[in-house]
Amino acid sequence: MKHEIIIAGFGGQGVLSMGKILAYAGLLDGKEVTWMPAYGPEQRGGTANVTVILSDEQISSPVLDSYDVAVILNQQSLDKFESRVKPGGLLIYDPYGIHRKPERTDIRIAEVNATEAAIETGNTKTYNMLLLGALLKLVPMVPIEAVIRGLEKTLPERHHNLIPLNRDAIMRGEQLVK
C-alpha cells in the first residue's frame, strides 16, 4: 500500500509539522516514509507545502507530479494542486478563505471546516491536528495510536502535557468529516 499526500497552505498553519507527525506515525507503524518540504522563506507567511509518502515498499521519488490525497488550506494551494490529484483520489479542503470551491468530479472532495472548529475549541494551535483527524478518518493510513506515539517522540518532553489536547483535537477532527 502506498499513500502519496500533499499538504498545502500558508506558513504558520502547521502544514510542515502536520506532515512530520504523519510521517513519524508511518515510521512507527513500520512503513517507509518521506517528508519533502518546499523550503525557504515560504516558512514565514507565504505558501507552504509538504509532500508526504507512506509506503510498504522502498520509496523512489520524494518529488511527485500527482497525489492520492491533497490537504488544501488556502486558495493558492487549491489553484495549484486541484488538477494534480489522481483520478479517484481525495481532496480535503478547509473552506475558510476559499472563494472558488474545487470543481473536479472524478475525485472525492471533502470539506472540513477546521478553522471554525479550532476557534470553537479555543485552541487554534491544534488546527493541524483537527485536519489530521479528518484525514485519518477518510483514509485510515496509520492508526491513531501511532500518531500519539509519534507526538511523544517528536515533542520535547516539556510539551508532553499537550498530548491529550492534541489527541482530543484528532478525535474532534474525525467528527468534522461529514
Binding site: 510521517a23 516514509v33 518540504p37 520524494p62
Partner: peptide, 10 residues
C-alpha cells in the same frame, strides 16, 4: 543537494 538535505526519511 537541497532535496536530500531538507527531506526527512527513516
Amino acid at each position: 543537494d537541497g532535496v536530500i538535505g531538507q527531506m526527512m526519511e527513516k
